[in-house]
């Protein structure tokens, strides 16, 4: 009888190893969804999974000043603030990992974590 090059047991073993490897890969990759983290004075007040947003909505954060934040399937932005310079609104839509905006007078910030693209670690200016 001829010896098979690869036995059935080998195929099963290889399949198990590949499956385990894939599971480990997916587990370690983790956090693929784009998450928007809204903070007041450094404490998280809201975490939004942007991949689950189907239609636009707004909410208010009562920081040192009140700010209104708008969430859309594309991203998240400051839409209204009681601050003087409105710089937070000028930051526009945050959509990529690493995007960040803050309303300093209100001490409210938004940052995007997870997802792909966006490789900026910090911003000067």
């Amino acid at each position: 009888m001829k010896t098979k090059l690869i036995k059935k047991a080998d195929i099963i073993a290889a399949a198990v190893i590949i499956a385990a490897g894939l599971a480990a890969f997916l587990f370690l990759r983790g956090g693929e969804g784009r998450m928007a983290v809204v903070e007041y004075n450094g404490k998280t007040v809201k975490t939004i999974d942007l991949s689950e947003v189907e239609k636009e909505y707004t909410f208010t954060v009562n920081g040192d000043l009140d700010v209104e934040i708008t969430v859309t399937p594309e991203g998240i932005r400051f839409s209204h603030s009681e601050c003087r310079d409105k710089l937070c609104i000028k930051f526009g839509l945050l959509s990529q990992r690493g995007d960040m905006a803050a309303c300093v007078p209100a001490k409210v910030s938004i940052r995007i974590t997870g997802g792909t693209g966006g490789t900026v670690d910090g911003i000067t200016g």
């Binding site: 090059l5 080998d10 290889a14 190893i17 590949i18 490897g21 480990a24 890969f25 370690l28 990759r29």
Partner: peptide, 24 residues
Amino acid sequence: KRTVSIYATLLILFSFYAYACSAS
């Protein structure tokens, strides 16, 4: 040939281990 298949299996195992380490 049996030895070859064992080595192939070990190679696959090592590859995933190395990838998992780098991913980690």
